[in-house]
Design a binder for these strands. Structure first.
Length: 379
DNA sequence: TTGCCCCGGAAGTTGGTG
DNA sequence: CACCAACTTCCGGGGCAA
């Protein structure tokens, strides 16, 4: 585990806690994208369990340990700058040997206790179903092959085995999208001058599951938006398991209206959850989400592009992919461009967007939108 | 003809607020 | 608890290019 990664994940926790504080530019520190291991490293988004949640703590990698600590740092609103990063650099076996006192001395009484509680819970969980959760090497190989075959188009040729690190994730993220947790989040936050919520727009989606599909630098900037089968046929899901699960659920017609918020059923309610302020802003608005994709061209990766930056005219290049991202952010796996575009059309009345007649997939920011102008973004 | 997109009405849900 | 904002879902209709 590189110390820079340690810094990133902990800095990020602080960035989420103190979004108004100026953050150092992490662009240069951002790990190169593309490898699944690096994608999953940042998958501990917004108080969502990371891969570690599905693995016996004894088998955690350094990365898993770090994600787990990061999760609790964020949930307890612990000031990550107070952490000694050397304490975070250990594997699961080492971690499991630590007593409550040791953890409390390393991480302070509050966080240490929380970590101990979590660790004991997880250890107890996996003590009973170890045989179910641990795949044999041959099973891993088999699953790896399946994933490689199924998702090969999502990866660059140089990618290593998908199961190089733990890739399993909860199929339904838990809760609290406000509290994102990845180094991309911090990046997003700092580059979004008007990001009033410190939300996670791109990052949540990028990090957690798309296994590089949007990030593949070789992805052509398709003009045909979703005629590209890459984006039209495959839900953006982490694993085949999740994929199958989602598919079966979505064949049922769902009721109208906003889908119910997933309830936290993962047994972590007992941890200190960051309480939403009574006046906490709502989550990201769609137009802000769109804006942030546009003003972060490094991470945009051909999803959208500016047609006329000065006038705020932009175009969806991969409309369905953007919709999937939006759906992921909203914990709504059945989001489509059709639905997203309906929401976009409502913005016309409010003058957040202006109509662009006769051009497919093209919209324009209106006078009631902010944060996209060059004067505002600084670039 | 088909597929994709645009349009806007209608009805629904969730979460914040008073 | 009512109200409201912000979507989400569904739908019928229409345009356009292949």
């Amino acid at each position: 585990m590189a110390s820079s990664e340690l810094s990133l994940i902990l800095n990020n926790a602080n960035a989420n806690l103190y979004p108004s504080e100026p953050q150092p530019n992490l662009l240069s520190m951002t790990a190169p994208m593309g490898r699944l291991s690096e994608m999953t490293f940042s998958s501990n988004n917004n108080s969502t369990m990371g891969p570690w949640d599905l693995v016996n703590p004894q088998m955690w990698t350094r990365q898993n340990v770090l994600e787990w600590i990061g999760f609790h740092v964020e949930n307890s609103r612990f000031d990550a700058s107070l952490l000694n990063m050397n304490y975070c650099d250990m594997d699961g076996i080492t971690l499991c040997t630590m007593s409550k006192e040791t953890l409390m001395s390393m991480f302070g009484s509050m966080l240490g206790e929380q970590l101990h509680h979590s660790l004991e819970t997880l250890k107890a969980r996996y003590a009973t179903d170890l045989s179910e959760t641990c795949l044999s090497e041959s099973e891993l190989d088999l699953l790896d092959n399946i994933l490689q075959n199924s998702f090969s188009y999502m990866h660059g040729p140089s990618l290593g085995p998908l199961l190089e690190t733990v890739v399993v994730q909860p199929s339904i993220p838990s809760d609290n999208s406000e509290n994102s947790f990845s180094y991309f989040d911090e990046y997003t936050n700092q580059l979004t001058p008007e990001s009033d919520h410190g939300y996670d727009s791109l990052t949540e989606s990028f990090q957690s599951s798309h296994t590089g599909s949007f990030l593949n630098p070789s992805s052509p900037e398709s003009n045909s938006s979703d005629s590209d089968p890459e984006y039209s046929e495959m839900p953006y899901s982490t694993s085949t398991k999740n994929f199958v699960k989602q598919e079966s659920v979505e064949t049922k017609k769902r009721g109208r209206g906003r889908p119910p918020k997933p309830r936290d059923s993962e047994g972590y309610e007992h941890f200190i959850q960051p309480k939403k302020s009574k006046h906490a802003p709502r989550g990201t608005h769609l137009w802000e989400f769109i804006r942030d994709i546009l003003i972060h061209p490094e991470q945009n990766q051909g999803l959208m592009k500016w047609e006329d930056r000065r006038d705020g005219v932009f175009k969806f290049l991969k409309s369905e992919a953007v919709a999937q991202l939006w759906g992921k952010k909203k914990k709504n796996s059945s989001m489509t461009y059709e639905k997203l575009s309906r929401a976009m059309r409502y913005y016309y009345k409010r003058e957040i967007l202006e109509r662009v007649d006769g051009r497919r997939l093209v919209y324009k920011f209106g006078k009631n939108s902010t944060g996209w102008r060059m004067e505002e973004t600084g670039y």
